[in-house]
Amino acid sequence: MRKFILALSLVSLNLHAASSGYTGTGIPIQGAAAVTTENLFSCEYGRSRLSPVGVKSAAGKRYVVPGQVNYKRVNFAADLYNQCNGVTPDSMADVPISDVPVVEIDPDGQVITGYIFADNYFELYVNGKLVGVDPVPFTPFNSNIVRFKVNKPYEIAVKVVDWEEHSGLGSEQNRGKPYHPGDGGFIASFSDGTVTSPDWYAQTYYTAPIYDLTCVEEVGSQRGSQKCSTEARDDASNAYSLHWDIPANWQTSGDYSDWPKATGFTEDHIGVNNKNAYMNFREKFTGAGASFIWSSNVVLDNLVLLRHRVE
């Protein structure tokens, strides 16, 4: 009976998607999420936005939005700049790099230092081992420093999330509108010369808000929403989200070569010239040759996985 009901649900979902003009591989779900956590983090300093976690369900599938995260204090990456913790150095000269703990991956490996700025949230894995989690899910904007010991070649895997105030709707209150799609961005450099660039791989797993599903185009593994509207609105109750299942072993699987390559973005596009968490250490980011990267849509793609092999 359960399989029969699930089959009927899938048929219903497919008919609904078809009636909306969507023929892609994702699962479209309309409306807001059921909020399970009202606010993951708060800070009395700066502009601390609510960072809710919610659930959207359809046809027997359950998706955590904006993403299933490993947000635990024990895993937090060290602060490069975090006004919530009173860490606000004016330059790299004021950063005690030697105080940053080293995550051991290979006992005889090289110690590598990484500098990370994420809009808004990241989880960094090296050879499948969790190296650091962003301590601030949303705002105020922060940056982090990590150290790990590893032998080459090694694999980098990053989960990046553009957080949302309105759970399941991919939007926030901004510029006078209650439902404004936010944008993401991730940049990092490492002391062994590794930098983020369009040579990395990036795949999206949660896209929202989408008001017309016919705007989505999928070619091969590219989940393209560039033709979809990014207009801010007063009402997003009819917005759709698109979801794809994340592979269980995405941090360690070598099977990502069919993913799309990452898209590079400029500092101006991401808008970091007023963010001390970035500008105070700019020489460690674009100054080191790194690029801001994301999937092909830095506004609507809210949960993205990144992969890169370091030779």
Rank of each mutant, 00 (worst) to 15 (best):
D94V: 13
D94A: 15
D94Q: 14
V95R: 08
V95Y: 07
V95W: 03
P96A: 02
P96H: 07
P96K: 08
P96D: 08
I97C: 12
I97N: 09
I97W: 15
I97T: 15
I97M: 11
I97S: 14
I97Y: 15
S98E: 15
S98A: 15
S98R: 11
S98H: 11
S98Y: 13
S98L: 12
S98T: 13
D99M: 15
V100F: 09
V100P: 08
V100G: 07
P101A: 01
P101K: 03
P101Y: 00
P101M: 00
P101Q: 01
P101F: 03
P101L: 00
V102E: 01
V103Y: 02
V103N: 10
V103P: 11
V103K: 12
V103M: 04
E104R: 10
E104M: 07
I105E: 00
D106C: 10
D106L: 11
P107R: 03
P107E: 11
P107I: 00
D108M: 14
D108P: 11
D108F: 12
D108Y: 13
G109D: 00
G109Q: 05
G109V: 01
G109P: 05
Q110E: 15
Q110S: 14
Q110P: 13
V111L: 10
V111N: 02
V111Y: 09
V111E: 06
V111H: 09
V111I: 11
I112W: 12
I112L: 12
T113S: 06
T113M: 04
G114N: 05
G114V: 08
Y115R: 13
Y115M: 13
Y115V: 13
Y115G: 06
I116T: 07
I116L: 11
I116H: 12
F117G: 06
F117S: 06
F117V: 09
F117H: 05
F117C: 06
F117D: 01
F117P: 05
A118I: 09
A118M: 04
D119P: 06
D119Y: 13
D119V: 14
D119I: 15
N120F: 08
N120D: 15
N120M: 08
Y121N: 09
Y121H: 14
F122Q: 02
F122R: 08
F122K: 12
F122P: 11
F122W: 02
E123S: 04
E123D: 02
E123R: 07
L124M: 06
Y125C: 01
Y125W: 12
Y125D: 01
V126A: 08
V126L: 05
N127V: 01
G128V: 07
G128D: 14
G128I: 09
G128L: 05
G128M: 07
K129V: 03
K129M: 01
K129E: 02
K129G: 00
L130I: 02
L130T: 04
L130S: 05
L130K: 06
